[in-house]
Design a protein around this nucleic acid. Sequence first.
DNA 1: ATCGGGGCATAAGCTGGCTTTATGGCCGAC
DNA 2: GTCGGCCATAAAGCCAGCTTATGCCCCGAT
Lengths: 307, 307
Amino acid sequence: MEGSGAGRPSAGPLAHRVPDLGALELLLAVARLGSLGGAARELGITQPAASSRIRSMERQLGVALVDRSPRGSRLTDAGALVTDWARRVVEAAEAFDAGAQALRDRRDSRLRVAASMTIAEYLLPGWLVALRARRPDTAVSLLAGNSAVVAERLLAGEADLGFVEGLSVPSGLDSVVIARDRLIVVTAPGHPWARRRRSLSAKELASTPLILRETGSGTRQVLDVALGGLARPLIELSSTTAVKAAAVSGAGPAVLSELAVGEELSLRRLVAVPVDEVALRRDLRAVWPTGHRPTGPARELLSLTRS
Amino acid sequence: MEGSGAGRPSAGPLAHRVPDLGALELLLAVARLGSLGGAARELGITQPAASSRIRSMERQLGVALVDRSPRGSRLTDAGALVTDWARRVVEAAEAFDAGAQALRDRRDSRLRVAASMTIAEYLLPGWLVALRARRPDTAVSLLAGNSAVVAERLLAGEADLGFVEGLSVPSGLDSVVIARDRLIVVTAPGHPWARRRRSLSAKELASTPLILRETGSGTRQVLDVALGGLARPLIELSSTTAVKAAAVSGAGPAVLSELAVGEELSLRRLVAVPVDEVALRRDLRAVWPTGHRPTGPARELLSLTRS
DNA sequence: ATCGGGGCATAAGCTGGCTTTATGGCCGAC
DNA sequence: GTCGGCCATAAAGCCAGCTTATGCCCCGAT
């Protein structure tokens, strides 16, 4: 898998070639404050520690990142670029942290959220980061499961706000649509369909073996309904990630939520195939027990999600 | 652990609450291979090291991530979710690595790229990751600068392929449009314009003090031309990031590339203000010396960028 | 039944990297 | 000229994570 040939530009685990999160965070602080010492204070370490850490990062990357002067430090041009890239890593780490923190099951949480997988995977961490920015003291707990589980928790009073992606709203719940998701057909760039300009008809789609999620998953459900229960599996896999991987490797066409393939499409690891106006849209909804409109933190979170 | 006060959900540097990149990478390998030992082998560490690392990650997050069995390890439900979030962090780190590696100025690189800031910041790392996947042995070097610098390097034979975002193509260069960028007006959600439904006219825009990049930057140039040289600065800042930060903090309306504010918009830290059909579009172009069509690695990279 | 192999956990010892404390030099402001 | 902010260097301590060395479990093949 990883080139063992001649002038290998990269080798070994990523962690050995990328500064750790602490160093990246420090770099962002330096960029923001214009001083190594200041950044050190903000992160609760000493100035020599910051100095040494930045220096070793520069050694690792082989590029000077900051211009030191007796009056402060400013980023070099390369440093500014690196800092921007670093910011993305740190933002992803923040989303990770927000999600992980919520996963830890804390009974005393002020806001208990139950969400379907797709939403928990792709949208919720971002919302949690935003929520944390506005209400830093709100402890959030997260439970991920299918629509039935979400409904059950809400009705049992064990969750304050839910998010589902099904076609219908479980009974006993009020809801509001917060976004629309579309299922799209994708293939590896080499597949014949990748060059297709004419839309696929529902019939063609139904008669071609596809890489699919297992029966019962939200995604599969929507597709089966749209095609009249006729979707033909080439392989059935139990996670979105596995489906993506199979599609990328060229195993065949796959049907996936557009939320799941943004990156793959923009890097052309996958290509979207145009499809007739089959009803492959589904609503993403926030849900709560009928009558109990969200209040407090739940209302706050809800307001972050109206897209 | 460190919580001292009330229910503060988070405190201290991110790095103390998020597993390091090595651990996340390990988790992805476990997910992919279904075995701790297998993942350990792939990353070049011993099985006990992997075991201990996963275990300490579980302690840190307070969640069981893998189900161990004498026949292998599978992710728990929570583990699958965490793994998906981890994948995003690792992907950002890969982009960082690809960019950083290219920044290191290596004369012997097979592919020397010169790019304008916006492109180098937001698009190039992704392309480099994709390129690395297809041509692992291609060493790439990157120089970031404005259009003039890019042109100069290309014409001097010191770069093989360039990317610029100006309104015009520097003379002596051939080009192809690879994407379109749009400048958009954004404000903090609290600003009166955030609730506006009617488009702003060019005149209104020109008569309102805005948070802007400094005169001479590509972004500012486009805006000045679109408004007839009349843009009125409220503050002038020297980096996109600084402009964003000012806008988020509510200092006023800002004008930025849509590439720069995707995240901020989707999390509602910023709101886009509709604008009349002012010519705020600009082409992003790949450029090369007239007559010298890109070949080899340059051609390969170029083919990744046609969006 | 038994043996071999794959897989995981635990124990003990080592090492390297990051920190801290302690100084010293540089520069501008008062 | 002296004070204060900022950075670098040196020396010493600490901890995380790695490795080596075992042991147990389960399954399938002989």
